[in-house]
Design a protein around this nucleic acid. Structure first.
Length: 592
RNA sequence: GGUCCGGUAGCUCAGUUGGAUAGAGCAGCAGCCUUCUAAGCUGCGGGUCAGGCGUUCGAGUCGCCUCCGGAUCACCA
């Protein structure tokens, strides 16, 4: 807000003084660093202007300052070396306060393409774990932020419900389960199916070991494996729509979806549309055939289909197996095309881990080779892994942090901490449960989202996620604290700008400037697809408010104008904290 | 080995796209509740920004080299 305006003013001043036209965006205007906050709110860096002014840095800053001080919004300027510090007038500050919690969507008038945002993309063999939590939270938050910035967003999920791996769990269940069901086992369906996937792997390894003990080599043993043979047969039958196999497949998937739905619900995640690979891979095969016909792809002697990307600096990539069955890439070709068919020309965003960078590079290149005009709209929002102190999580080795368990633990921690503090003894049990859920999940979500998505992050299960300091509960607490003050204040009159001619307390002045940056931060988080920017911004704001709160009295302030101002600031801060947290998928409690 | 990503305080992370004296939290120590919610606030200690060279008025940020981690290069997904 302010910085845009100041850029324009400075550009105009430079035009007047030096008869030189510069775009406002080319100027560097930054928030004044705290050490000089007393002398300015924003600073213009004048070093790049010396060629134009042909004067010393100090002199250049001074004459621009002299020009700017003529504006009513600028109260004073102060030159330090090559920095022109500008202090805003109390009237300008007060005027900004009223609209500080509003988001001005930057994309709304730019005719931006709608966004189809894929996230979650679970595999029906694997119960959701901490890695999926990061994916889901990122996807959900990025969608919310893009919408706030004025984009039309379609949230889509792609369920990986077909393929050789799915046949493995089906086979293991057929052979070893004795018709066990989630009900009979007392287990969530996704957990039950996941257990059979792990069991397949175990039995397969036993079989391999046995074969090798008979003297076969690794490769021969793999080819002689009866279990693998049966799984492959099952995939062939599945692709041939064998009724018996389809029936089993539907049954087991139904169990998994019931389990997933429960986890999504707790996480607070939902989608506008769910795609299933079982429905998209056929279109993928058509695209492969189209590419074959147009000689973009080629067939090897064994019948398998490939694309040659050596000209692009990559290698050959398989698109269809020799037996005609599909691979991952096959279905992703179909899925992308289907989304364009469903939503028209769009930006296709994929929230997928950075381990698949290569896959998406290939996907883009293939569509480019096929001449799709929208190939350039594919964007892989590649996020880093969640690592444990021992290293990467591995489903098959059981070193995963289960999503359901973790969320339950967070809630339990919130419960014990709340009980210890004893502030909500008048809550009924439903209100209390809601609070534990809100705070526990708030801690988890913030913990994940405050980290730059592109970077790997560390999670140590032995150290519980903090509730103090730079955390979700800290921000929630600040919100609840403000609400408590506002409840006690009751109704209060609006502000009279003229009553602040003498100036504002530095804390008041500074926090309003911080507040005014909210809308810019949301738009920046949207253009960078980075919720962490927003998370860290609202944390700083909450921290600043707590300092304000400790230093100044609000309700007991005798001067009515000051009391009103502080209440208004408190209200606006609460609004921003709430809306900022909501953009991260985090709820706020009215009391805690 | 090729390609890509990363390395900032004991630990976990920021660092506004090249700007001023590199910041938070946690952990440690010392204070602050008769007063608007102490899940808070204040203070102290803690740094060769992996290392080197370069570009620049100015480099944690850009370029090159080296070292160290990770991912990927599957008829797995």
């Amino acid at each position: 807000m302010f910085s845009d305006k100041l850029s324009r003013y400075a550009a105009a001043a430079i035009q007047t003084l030096f008869n030189h036209t510069l775009s406002p965006e080319s100027l560097t205007i930054q928030r004044t660093i705290p050490a000089f906050r007393e002398f300015g709110d924003f600073s213009l860096v004048v070093f790049p202007l010396l060629k134009i002014s042909r004067k010393s840095p100090e002199e250049t800053a001074r004459i621009i300052g002299e020009q700017l001080i003529l504006l009513p919004e600028i109260a004073q300027y102060y030159v330090v070396k090559g920095f022109l510090n500008l202090k805003l007038s109390p009237q300008a500050i007060i005027a900004a306060l009223g609209e500080s919690a509003e988001i001005q969507p930057a994309a709304i008038n730019k005719a931006e393409l709608p966004v189809v945002l894929e996230f979650s993309s679970p595999n029906t063999n694997k119960p959701l774990h901490l890695g999926h939590i990061r994916n889901n939270l990122l996807g959900y938050s990025v969608a919310a932020i893009l919408e706030a910035a004025g984009y039309k967003v379609h949230k889509v999920n792609l369920v990986n419900d077909r393929g050789i791996h799915i046949c493995k769990s089906m086979l293991a269940w057929t052979l070893f389960a004795n018709n066990e069901t989630p009900e009979s086992a007392g287990k969530k369906g996704d957990k039950l199916v996941g257990d059979y996937y792990v069991l397949f792997d175990k039995k397969y390894k036993e079989e391999l070991a046995h074969l090798k003990s008979e003297g076969w080599s690794e490769e021969v043993a793999a080819s002689k494996s009866l279990l693998m043979q049966q799984a492959r047969d099952m995939l062939l039958k599945w692709e041939a729509r064998d009724p018996e196999i389809l029936r089993l497949w539907k049954q087991m998937n139904g169990w998994v979806y019931a389990g997933f739905d429960e986890t999504y619900k707790t996480m607070g995640i939902h989608f506008d549309k769910i795609y299933y690979e079982s429905e998209t891979y056929l279109l993928g095969r058509e695209i492969v055939n189209e590419g074959l016909k147009e000689k973009v792809f080629f067939k090897k002697e064994d019948g398998s289909v490939w694309v040659d990307l050596s000209e692009e600096g990559l290698d050959e990539k398989l698109l269809l197996r020799a037996d005609g069955t599909s691979v991952y890439m096959t279905q992703d070709l179909g899925t992308a095309q289907l989304r364009i068919n469903d939503f028209g020309t769009s930006r296709l965003l994929y929230v997928v881990g950075n381990e698949q960078n290569y896959h998406f590079e290939v996907l883009k290149l293939i569509f480019k080779k096929l001449g799709r005009p929208w190939a350039g709209n594919i964007f892989h929002l590649s996020y880093g892994m969640v690592e444990l102190p021992e290293g990467k999580m591995k489903s098959r080795e059981g070193t995963v942090v289960d999503a359901d368990d973790l969320m339950a633990e967070m809630k339990a921690t919130a419960r014990s901490m709340t009980e210890e503090l004893g502030k909500i003894d008048d809550f009924n049990s439903e209100e209390a449960e809601n609070l534990y859920q809100t705070v526990g999940l708030g801690a988890l979500k913030y913990f994940i989202l405050k980290v730059d998505p592109r970077k790997n992050m560390m999670f140590d299960p032995r150290e519980s996620i903090d509730f103090n300091g730079n955390t979700g509960p800290f921000i929630q607490y600040t919100y609840a604290r403000i609400k408590s003050v506002l409840r006690k204040a009751g109704v209060y009159p609006g502000l009279n700008p003229d009553s602040f001619d003498a100036g504002l307390h530095p804390r008041e002045h500074s926090i309003i400037v911080s507040l005014s940056l909210f809308s810019t931060m949301v738009n920046q988080a949207a253009s960078e697809l980075n919720p962490a920017l927003l998370a860290n911004f609202i944390y700083e704001l909450a921290r600043e408010y707590n300092q304000f709160y400790h230093e100044l009295t609000i309700l007991k302030e005798a001067d009515e104008n000051k009391r009103n101002l502080r209440l208004t600031i408190s209200y606006q801060i609460a609004q921003v904290l709430k809306s900022g947290l909501n953009l991260l998928g985090i709820e706020v409690p009215e009391r805690m």
